[in-house]
């Protein structure tokens, strides 16, 4: 099974973590909400699968390019 890294595309602060470890998620689900430039930025999963690792918590500053989570892809 392929593990997909969810990469942060916009530097900002995590205001909400919407998933937990081992959660079953569908492509397009919102995993995190970041605040950056006073906007809410939703981070969605590019694939369906299991959340294997969450690297951030609420309040963390996350730079562009950081790995937010790792998802084990479950194919169709």
């Amino acid at each position: 099974m392929e593990v997909i890294k969810v990469i942060n595309e916009m530097a900002g602060t995590v205001v909400e973590v919407r998933v937990s470890q081992e959660a079953n998620i569908q492509e397009g689900d919102t995993l995190f909400v970041l605040e950056s430039m006073k906007m809410q930025i939703e981070v969605q999963t590019p694939v369906s699968g299991l959340v294997r690792k969450i690297n951030v918590e609420e309040g963390d500053f996350i730079d562009e390019g950081s790995v937010l989570a790792e998802i084990e892809e479950v194919s169709g």
Binding site: E9, M10, S36, M37, M39, Q40, I41
Partner: peptide
Amino acid sequence: QPSVKGGA
């Protein structure tokens, strides 16, 4: 585009 990177 506000739905991507807040439109920044």
